Amino acid sequence: MREQFYAAVIADILDDYGYRNQVMSHIIRPLKPETVVAGRAKTVLCSDVYEIPESPYQKEIEAVDRLAANQVLVCTTNGSVRYSFWGELLSTAAVARSATGAVIDGFTRDTRAIIEMDFPVFATGRLPTDSKGRGEVVDYDVTIDCGGVTVNTGDIVFGDDDGVVVIPQEVEQQVIQSAFRKVNQENQIRQELLEGASVRSVFDKYGIL
C-alpha cells in the first residue's frame, strides 16, 4: 500500500463512495518531504491543562506503550498551540513497537532526531515546549476529530506530501480494491498522454482526470 497508493487516489475513491470529508486539514504536514505513512489508527485525545498534575503523562504513557505493529498513532490536541505532544523519545518507543507513524493535530518537537531516525511524523507545526502542565491525554482508543476528520481506532490512515486521508473500516475493502484499479488506469492514462493523446480523448475513454 505504501509503495503503490497515494493520498489523492484514495481521496478520489472515497469521494466516489460518498465519503467526501476524509482528508485532514492541509496544515497537517510531514516533517520531511516525500514521507509516507500508512497503517491502522490508534486514536489519542488530548486536552489543555493549566497546572502540573500529580502524576503527569499517565495516559500518554499507556497509549504509547499499547501501540501495536502497523498502527499509526493519531492524536488531536483540540487545536492547542501551547505545547508539543510528540517528540524523539515517543518516536523511539513507537519504532520499538513496530508502529508505522504518528499523525498529530498539534505540534511536535525534536525534529532533527525524528528525521534522522526516519520515523514518519505528520503535524501542524513544531514547538520546543513540553506538554507537562499544559496538555494531558484524557483518553485513547476513542472517536476523535483529527484535522476535521472523524477517526476511530482501526481506521486506515494514509499520508504523503499531499496530505492525510482516512479510510473508515466499513468501506476499507471496497476502497482499497477500487484504488488499485484506479492506480492501474492512471498508469495507462499517463502512458497515453506521453504518447501524445489529448486530455479530452483519455478523459472520454477512462472518465478520470
Results as ranks from 00 to 15, higher is better:
86 W>Q: 11
70 N>I: 04
16 D>M: 13
59 K>A: 05
72 V>E: 03
105 D>M: 03
17 Y>E: 08
185 Q>K: 14
161 D>L: 03
178 S>Q: 14
175 V>N: 01
167 I>K: 00
103 V>A: 02
109 R>K: 14
33 P>T: 12
14 L>A: 09
39 G>F: 02
77 T>Y: 01
9 V>A: 04
135 G>L: 00
79 G>K: 12
72 V>Y: 00
206 Y>Q: 10
95 V>D: 08
90 L>T: 03
113 A>N: 12
38 A>W: 13
84 S>N: 05
103 V>Q: 04
79 G>E: 15
81 V>S: 15
128 P>E: 06
208 I>H: 02
198 S>Q: 08
143 T>N: 03
75 C>T: 05
50 Y>C: 01
146 C>G: 03
82 R>E: 13
137 V>I: 15
18 G>W: 15
22 Q>A: 10
134 R>A: 12
196 G>I: 04
159 G>W: 02
95 V>M: 15
46 C>W: 14
87 G>K: 06
112 R>Y: 06
15 D>E: 12
125 G>S: 10
46 C>F: 13
57 Y>L: 14
48 D>S: 08
119 F>M: 06
44 V>F: 02
139 D>T: 09
20 R>P: 00
33 P>H: 11
72 V>S: 01
109 R>A: 10
193 L>M: 11
86 W>M: 12
126 R>Y: 03
110 D>H: 15
15 D>C: 03
16 D>A: 15
3 E>G: 08
58 Q>L: 14
73 L>I: 15
207 G>D: 10
100 T>P: 02
13 I>T: 12
65 D>L: 12
107 F>A: 15
95 V>P: 06
138 V>S: 06
69 A>N: 11
161 D>E: 13
64 V>Y: 03
181 R>I: 05
172 E>W: 07
5 F>H: 01
75 C>K: 01
7 A>I: 00
15 D>N: 15
150 T>M: 06
58 Q>R: 15
193 L>C: 04
177 Q>E: 14
85 F>Q: 03
163 G>L: 03
18 G>C: 11
3 E>A: 11
